[in-house]
Simulated scan of single mutants.
Amino acid sequence: MNSPLSRLICRATLLAAGFMLCLQAAFAQDLDEVRKRGVLRHLGVPYANFVTGSGDGFDVELMQGFARELGVRYEFVQSNWNDVIGDLTGKEIRYKPSVQEIGSRPVRGDVIANGMTILPPRLKLLDFSEPTFPSAVWLLARPDVAVTPIKPSGNREQDIKATKARMGVGTTFVMDNSCLDPTLYDLEGKGLKLKRFTGSTNINDVVPAMLKGESDMTLLDVPDVLVALELWPGKIKVVGPISEEQRMAAGFRKESPELRKAFNAYLARLKADGTYMRLVKKYFRVAPRYLPEFFRDLPPAR
């Protein structure tokens, strides 16, 4: 039987089987599969106090509590900024000149949580939870660099413009495919001395490199700035903002809507009962002073 009709039937059968496998794979990545497997795999990159690398952190405790909420075991899966989205989606990603899927890779986790900023390129690849933390990108410098911090005007747009104008005095660390990517803030092609940070894929290493004199200034997001100011008091000055206020959140596969929905319900409860602010106080105690609007209406820590 090798007639055109039999070949057509065979081809249709294979296509249908392939479709069912894809459909099963999509369902297998959602809430039911996490519960059946009995473990929530938390993908994280050591960063600021979200994932400290010592077994704790703001997002580590959030995800440990979420695993308990689901009645499953918690498992931390360490990744890096270059690979973490691919480790979640099972797809090799190329970001420039545009975001493209260029291959496949093993899926290593169920959710990303490490102070990940919601950025337009990432929205093409992930579905984010409700915001877990506020952020923004600021310009930092060493005290010996001849740059004067701006005087806040009360107008964020004017403050950003004034901060960018001060970048001309020296080199500034930036990092592609991260919240420190200069293309996000219209910094490319402006005659600025932008220096790609290539010492590692860990944003935690940017400030130490700047303090060693490898760059005069650096972009950095606010949560990491707060940690840096405590680690190196008197050795860093904040010049001003580079971005509008941003939001951080947990990242989920687009095939995991029920898992994301369950996390959002869990997060809302933590914010309502004061558990969320207890974690903020533990890991980012001065954050409400620097980004008050996000925390203003939340119940106090319990």
Score class of each variant (00 low, 15 high):
61 E>Y: 14
15 L>A: 13
279 L>P: 06
16 A>E: 03
97 P>L: 12
69 E>Q: 14
285 R>L: 12
24 Q>N: 11
270 L>C: 08
159 D>I: 00
68 R>Y: 00
129 S>C: 10
248 M>T: 09
165 A>D: 12
187 L>K: 10
110 D>M: 04
2 N>F: 12
278 R>L: 12
181 D>R: 08
13 T>M: 09
49 N>S: 10
10 C>Y: 03
247 R>W: 00
77 V>P: 11
193 K>F: 07
112 I>N: 05
174 V>S: 01
117 T>N: 07
62 L>I: 01
143 P>D: 01
76 F>Y: 15
187 L>T: 11
119 L>C: 03
251 G>T: 02
53 G>M: 08
266 Y>A: 04
286 V>I: 07
15 L>C: 08
141 A>M: 07
231 L>Y: 07
162 A>S: 06
78 Q>L: 13
168 G>L: 10
140 L>G: 08
150 I>Y: 05
108 R>H: 10
1 M>W: 08
6 S>D: 13
141 A>D: 05
255 E>D: 09
99 V>M: 09
277 M>K: 15
295 F>T: 10
298 L>P: 09
255 E>G: 00
194 L>Y: 10
287 A>S: 14
223 P>W: 12
217 M>A: 01
257 P>N: 11
215 S>I: 03
224 D>L: 10
167 M>G: 09
134 P>I: 04
66 F>Q: 00
222 V>E: 10
163 T>N: 06
253 R>C: 01
282 K>S: 04
258 E>I: 02
94 R>F: 05
19 F>R: 02
34 V>W: 05
211 L>E: 02
116 M>S: 14
80 N>F: 02
262 A>S: 15
206 V>W: 11
283 Y>C: 08
64 Q>R: 15
34 V>L: 10
126 L>Y: 01
251 G>L: 02
134 P>C: 06
145 V>P: 04
96 K>L: 15
230 E>G: 10
82 N>H: 04
66 F>M: 06
162 A>R: 09
287 A>R: 05
45 V>R: 04
181 D>K: 09
282 K>T: 14
72 V>D: 11
185 Y>R: 13
216 D>I: 06
1 M>G: 15
70 L>P: 06
214 E>D: 14
31 L>R: 09
205 D>W: 02
248 M>Q: 15
117 T>L: 11
167 M>H: 08
199 G>M: 08
115 G>W: 12
19 F>A: 14
25 A>E: 08
84 V>F: 00
259 L>W: 07
169 V>L: 07
121 P>D: 01
57 G>Y: 00
